[in-house]
Amino acid sequence: MTDRIITYSEAIREAIGQAMEADPNVFMLGEDIGIYGGAFGVSGDLYHRFGADRIRDTPISELGIVGAAVGAALVGMKPIVEIQFSDFTAQAMDQIVNQAAKIHFMLGGELSVPMVLRAPIGSGTGAAAQHSQSLEAWFAHVPGLKVVMPATAQDAKGLLLAAIDDPNPVLVLEHKLLYKTSGPVTEAAVRTPIGKSHVARTGKDLVIVATGVMVSRSLEAAAALSEKGIEATVIDVRTLSPLDMEPIEEAVRATGRILLVQEAPKHVGFMAEVSARLAEGKSLYSLEAPIKRLCGMDIPIPYAPQLEKAVVPQIPNIIQAVEDLIREP
């Protein structure tokens, strides 16, 4: 099987199509995913390939949709829910947090919820505060959920296929700026393992840990820094829950400096957990400078393009943060 250059959206669609061909219990439900093709065009032609029963358009009822997916999953189906914007998961929180996440544990282990919930996250589209959030830390904080954030087209496909296989509820948070980006993607239904951080670039001077769209920004920053003689390792966390710290700790031991980059607000964000785990572990003794976080500002995402860009890390901000970190202490 060969790699082709396809978009992140196409990779997701290919994964869903392959999973549905392989297993009649896999189906998709969500708002405007049918003939419309999805708000971001992800489901595309799946409706024409698989029909209205399995590419199931729903009313605007996020709580009902997720609850229906939980119920269907309990009795042997493998639902893939699309929530149009991750912000709308707030409407469905009871079913995600109190039901899907708890059922396997709370009910004694006999039942489980093999559900996938896909949702677009992030800013950059001028959609303002209710359509641009990065809420991954909410879900990573709830035992019973798995949370993945694919940063490449290959992982958009591979992590989704792994999520569909998984007997637990998995949230797949897709950055909406990535949908139209392209990359090499294996044609076969290859899984990207859930629960493994990925070293995307190796360099001796420091490690940048990033999630979602910040992975490609960090890689671009690293390329620019390389021209200035600074070599960065870049780690794509990929799975926020359960979190794999091993490659991160190893990179800290090797480089002695670490920059944590996320789009979400800094306060009580995901990178606070990475930072705390480093501080609790032995790799702390390898640090030559304090742990540094570069995050979104602790404010809602604003509308105006110049404001929107200003509140989340951009490539020049990452370069600057690395240069500051290298100069320390």
Binding site: D53, A69, V70, G71, A72, L74, G76, M77
Partner: peptide, 14 residues
């Protein structure tokens, strides 16, 4: 209630 609807949806689909 939504869970019951989903379990019923599964019966209908199967």
């Amino acid at each position: 209630i939504p869970i019951a609807a989903g379990a019923a949806l599964a019966q209908k689909m199967k």
